[in-house]
């Protein structure tokens, strides 16, 4: 029986910029930041109150995972906002919305009461989008 999810990956265009976005803007904590050889880095962060979930900020680079062509195609898809990676949760959506906006986070949907809940949508610095809901 599977019991928990403890790692998930998000593909980003630039790990330094993603670090700044997730840590300095969203307020996430760095879990592991390990150099893995020339040009490679294992960088994981976690939401402040969910320390057992590591979000790996994965660089899109040519190598084992991507050919040059597929890396280029993936970068275009990410930058174009193709991927929605999940739903984050906060205690107070309106306050979090105002705070993240003040920090420069781009929202594509302001807090809106939908039939399924109260949500906003925002993009990370690469173009990945997330829903933000209220507990």
């Amino acid at each position: 029986m599977i019991t928990r999810l403890n790692h998930v990956s998000i593909f980003v265009l630039n790990q330094d910029s993603a670090y700044d976005f997730y840590v300095n803007k969203l307020g996430f904590k760095v879990h592991t930041d390990a150099p893995m050889g020339p040009g490679a880095r294992w960088l994981t962060v976690n939401p402040p109150e969910q320390t057992d979930l590591e979000i790996a900020l994965m660089a899109i680079s040519e190598g084992m995972m991507f050919t040059r062509e597929s890396a280029e195609a993936m970068r275009k898809l990410v930058a174009g906002g193709t991927f929605g990676f999940g739903v984050f949760q906060c205690n107070d959506l309106l306050a979090t919305y105002e705070e993240l906006k003040a920090k420069g986070v781009e929202f594509t949907k302001a807090p809106t009461q939908e039939f399924y809940g109260f949500e906003a949508l925002f993009k990370d610095d690469s173009g990945n989008w997330f829903s933000l809901g209220q507990k």
């Binding site: 390990a34 294992w42 995972m65």
Partner: peptide
């Protein structure tokens, strides 16, 4: 030790 094997293999680490 800090990288799950699936990610390590995907990256050729």
């Amino acid at each position: 030790k800090h990288v799950p094997n699936c990610f390590a293999e995907m990256n050729g680490w």
